[in-house]
């Protein structure tokens, strides 16, 4: 079970990322606990200034853009 957080406030990009991860996790049959983080203090506390960001099992793996589907695949499989 992977613990995944999507960081971001507005823009709508963050919702896109949530959906992408959800769909791909379903397709790959990977179990995930997906959570959206909008609180700025938490986001900055993780060292991220540009959203959307992605955190997997407590580790920041991405920030500043909607990640490529291939990247999401790699995170989910890894």
């Amino acid at each position: 079970m992977k613990n995944i957080k999507v960081l971001g406030g507005c823009c709508g990009n963050c919702d896109t990322v949530m959906k992408m991860i959800e769909t791909q996790a379903k397709n790959l049959g990977v179990e995930v606990a997906l959570e959206k983080v909008t609180d700025m203090a938490t986001i900055l506390g993780l060292g991220v200034m540009s959203t959307p960001g992605v955190v997997i099992d407590g580790k920041v793996v991405h920030s500043g853009s909607v990640p490529a589907p291939s990247k999401i695949d790699a995170w989910l499989k890894g």
Partner: peptide, 11 residues
């Protein structure tokens, strides 16, 4: 009061 974590610069 916000403390920013060491920017784990994304790859």
């Amino acid at each position: 009061k916000i403390h920013m974590g060491e920017a784990a610069l994304p790859e």
